[in-house]
Design a protein around this nucleic acid. Structure first.
Lengths: 207, 207
DNA sequence: CTCCGGTGAATGGCGGTTCATTCATGGAAG
DNA sequence: CTTCCATGAATGAACCGCCATTCACCGGAG
């Protein structure tokens, strides 16, 4: 346990952020006490205020920084490529897999981002919009390729896709029921998006 | 449930619930003060505690009672009928239209129900599950009719559908941007669910 | 008169934030 | 090398405002 040192700054800040994710995801923003986060990150209450303006700022920093990582990650995985449908599949899988790699983060984003978009004055979730942008890019590409309907409403569709993924994540987080396991959910969501609910069309048989 | 007065009992309780919806939807549960709700419903602070156990109970009662109305309403509209696709369309339209008829309620459900599912101990959102059940019923019927894929994963699909609708509602509530207008959103979501994102298949197109 | 729904000022404690204090560190001086 | 100080990161107890909840009291109906 390195108690003191001049170069701990960034490290300490990160410890706080990670602890905040853990605590917020367990009890929600409003039910979490700053002192708890302090304890969980092995830091004094006051120290948190050296790195963050206040409790709100801690939440927002968490959103922007961690969501930034997520966006960068999925952009990279998608660049590997294929057609728009392949990229969509990658996006979906990536989102659902985050649930296992970064469960706490996803839980916080799901529940608190929603609150925050609505109630935190003068906060625009920049990184969240970038995440949606990733979906738009895929959809636009699909239209250009002629793979997706030319009349596809990209603005609405990207929200619908995000909403579906988000709800399934929440469901799995709350229930841990294997019937909503990320792999199961992402497969079904992909099938719905690719071909809809309806029974097989003559030409669209995928094995 | 104090119901002594000539006709004021149930009426007063309802005034409180309606005011709570308004206040919660504007500021969120945690940022709303009981005294505000009292003022908004023309009642004293203490009176609220004659009708509800505490602030949490007020929120939960609101969920269950109002969501109950929503479920009953959509069940009725759907019973009017048609095949599964027609019913799905009714469900979608009904959900998005609620946004205009019952904006406040929808906003509360969207943001706070999510919180509550996760953080309110020993609360199971009974009426919310009933709402999902309505979707399941439609999907199962579609499978029986041979209209929907026999391998459709109903559990996942109903969540995906709800998630898509929910996200679009939230988007419209936050932006009021006409490009997410309920009528626009519901049309596009229906198209995606019915036929997927992909361009027209050779034989399945009747102009 | 009694009863009781309703009242709203008072209360209690909770928790975000502050700030006086501590002390490891590294450099300057001897 | 040792000693001494200035620095500022870190601390955490105390502060203070807030707000859910309570309860002593009021007034109208029977």
């Amino acid at each position: 346990m390195p108690r003191r040192g001049p170069n701990n700054g960034a490290d300490k800040r990160n410890r706080i952020l990670r602890a905040a994710i853990r605590i917020f995801s367990q009890k929600g923003f409003f039910n979490s006490k700053v002192s708890e986060i302090a304890r969980a990150s092995g830091v004094a209450d006051g120290t948190i205020y050296l790195y963050f303006k206040n409790k709100d700022d801690l939440l927002i920093s968490l959103f922007e920084e961690k969501m930034g990582d997520v966006v960068a990650g999925v952009r990279q995985r998608i660049s590997a490529g294929g057609d728009a449908l392949a990229k969509l599949r990658i996006f979906i899988d990536n989102h659902m897999e985050l649930l296992e790699r970064e469960a706490g983060l996803i839980e916080v984003l799901q529940v608190e981002l929603r609150q925050s978009k609505k109630f935190l004055k003068d906060y625009t979730p920049v990184k969240f919009f970038e995440y949606l942008e990733v979906i738009s890019d895929i959809l636009e590409e699909g239209k250009r390729e002629g793979l997706f309907r030319p009349d596809l409403n990209v603005s609405v569709a990207r929200r619908a896709i995000f909403g579906a993924l988000d709800e399934l994540c929440l469901t799995y987080v709350l229930s841990h029921n294997p019937k909503y396991h990320p792999s199961v959910s992402s497969a079904e969501i992909y099938r719905i998006l690719a071909g809809g609910l309806c029974a097989a069309k003559p030409s669209a048989q995928a094995g």
